[in-house]
């Protein structure tokens, strides 16, 4: 077993993991942060996207051991109590989610887009940048709208 120390949603955390423990399993099973989901086993669907040191990462394709010393932000770490982060709020306002399963990864990918492309995102950029996130419910149109609106709202 390995001991890892990291910060998750601003809180210091330590844990004992097998070398093969994936970061997503550490978050879900040990920390009980079940907002991060697992939708595939080939790094395609993006339901598991979290932020590591400010960058989006697929938590199913990273060992927990690799996150030793890192700062991890999950969907649980965005809101201020019940007050949603502007990106979360935009998803609610624009019906950017249905079953909610892909949603945490979508929100995280939206934040990563803002980090890299700024607050003024066009449709084509958002659609292209979502190629690592699969949603079966929404047909994406409202997700695209939500991310664009959320990005704008983050400027204010």
């Amino acid at each position: 077993m390995l001991t890892i120390n990291l910060a998750v949603n601003g809180q210091p955390v330590s844990g004992e993991v097998e070398a093969r423990t994936l970061l997503v399993d550490f978050l879900r099973e040990q920390l009980r942060l079940t907002g991060t989901h697992v939708g595939c086993d080939t790094s395609q669907c993006g339901a598991c996207v979290v932020m590591i040191d400010g960058k989006s990462v697929k938590a199913c394709t990273m060992l927990a051991a690799m996150a030793d010393g890192a700062e991890v932000t999950t969907i649980e770490g965005l809101a201020n109590g019940a007050e949603l982060h502007p990106m979360q709020q935009a998803f609610m306002d624009h019906h950017g989610l249905q079953c909610g399963f892909c949603t945490p990864g979508m929100v995280m990918s939206g934040l990563d887009m803002v980090n890299r492309h700024g607050n003024d995102l066009d449709d084509a950029t958002v659609r292209r940048e979502l190629n690592g996130n699969i949603c079966r419910c929404t047909g994406y149109q409202n997700i695209v709208k939500a991310i664009r609106t959320g990005a704008k709202a983050m400027e204010e």
Partner: peptide
């Protein structure tokens, strides 16, 4: 790949 894959 995709943005998250490119980050790793």
């Amino acid at each position: 790949g995709d943005p998250a894959v490119r980050n790793r």
